[in-house]
Design a protein around this nucleic acid. Structure first.
Lengths: 204, 204
DNA sequence: ACGCCGGCGTAGACAGTGTCTACCCGTCGA
DNA sequence: TCGACGGGTAGACACTGTCTACGCCGGCGT
């Protein structure tokens, strides 16, 4: 069930496995080929350049993240709870798979990968999710001062910034390193804070 | 006044110049040495490894950013205006110097650079600025529901996320690419939105 | 005045990388 | 049976970061 795959899929599999365990710096073209059991020139048959292979790996990361979103936001929960679940899934994904998350937003590596790799150009792929965000925010408070799209980007940027700075070390540093709770609790409270802030709800 | 500098400073100068014009991928050790007019082994006398040199360059970036903060937040303006100025300086720095900004938060490149390079370990350097943030937020609204430190990290993460996603392309994409205003206006309004959201002011 | 020594930079080697090119080999079709 | 072709191999090339040995030159002590 693994050897039957085409080499193209196997290369991406190996790359995903590698970035999850060893980090993005270990995603050398030859290293991936080596672990896939083929010679270093083989990937070139499917990916014209190293960037193309990295883009395919990153695309898998976006797919995984979308899957987490799907299972985090389904059901008929109130919109605020769904927003909390989405934001939590985002940050948790970033800290569970830091290498993949870093790769997904390394725009210097993925730049210039148009629709050559099959599928939408990565960023457009996040649009439907953004639409869900807008819908949830609209349903959460109909009498908003700013357009829901603006609130949506603001909230998205906030969650993304939390994920990034958490991995960078800035948040743990600023909030004081002492951690009485198992750690996830503080994160959940921070997420709830920012969601409520953008929803305009003063009560936490 | 340039040739009088020690080679150490000259290497960092060249690196800064290079990352501003060509991006972070052009920061090869040999390339920097070449542009500094020395052989490829010379940097090793001052920086034990490539990462150490990159860290020194990133440190200069943080110094530049701190300088912008200093001139953006001085004066006796009301705290909200100072917060707006700080946030605007942050995002504007990121979009004016995208390469440097990317380098500054590439934790995979700068990881493990302890106090070996002289000066605080990069992240601790951002603590005084964070203190200013807390102070401004406290002064802005004394009867807050959440601690000012939490609001400060939330706001910082929000601004950072805006900077990152703007460079990545997500924000321009989500908000619709049409740009009637000269562009900076929309950014200023977004920043004002997030600052007010975290300050709990419902009026925009 | 002489010799030595240490800081500073050069130059070469080595392993490893991404890209390019030529080649080879099994399979399928005419 | 022969040819073509998809799919993989292997070598070359330029380049990278790191390591090591070697020169140069100025200042020191004796």
């Amino acid at each position: 069930m693994h050897s039957e795959d085409s080499l193209r899929d196997r290369l991406v599999d190996v790359g995903v496995e590698l970035v999850l365990t060893e980090g993005v710096s270990s995603l050398g073209l030859r290293e991936i080929a080596r672990r896939a059991g083929v010679s270093h020139g083989a990937p070139r048959r499917y990916f014209p350049t190293h960037q193309a292979l990295l883009s395919a790996i990153a695309r898998r990361g976006f797919a995984d993240l979308a899957a987490r979103f799907a299972e985090a936001a389904d059901g008929a929960a109130p919109p605020r709870e769904r927003l909390l679940a989405l934001a939590g899934a985002y940050v948790r994904y970033a800290q569970e798979r830091p290498g993949m998350f870093a790769l997904m937003f390394r725009h210097d590596l993925l730049r210039g990968e148009a629709r050559a790799a099959g599928g939408p150009p990565l960023r457009e792929a996040s649009l439907p999710l953004f639409g869900l965000l807008v819908e949830l925010i609209t349903r959460c408070d109909a009498r908003r001062k700013v357009p829901a799209e603006v609130t949506a980007v603001a909230l998205w940027a906030n969650v993304h910034g939390i994920a990034e700075l958490w991995g960078w070390g800035g948040i743990g540093l600023a909030l004081g390193e002492e951690d009485p709770a198992p750690g996830g609790d503080r994160l959940d409270r921070l997420i709830a804070t920012v969601v409520d802030a953008h929803l305009g709800e003063a009560d936490a």
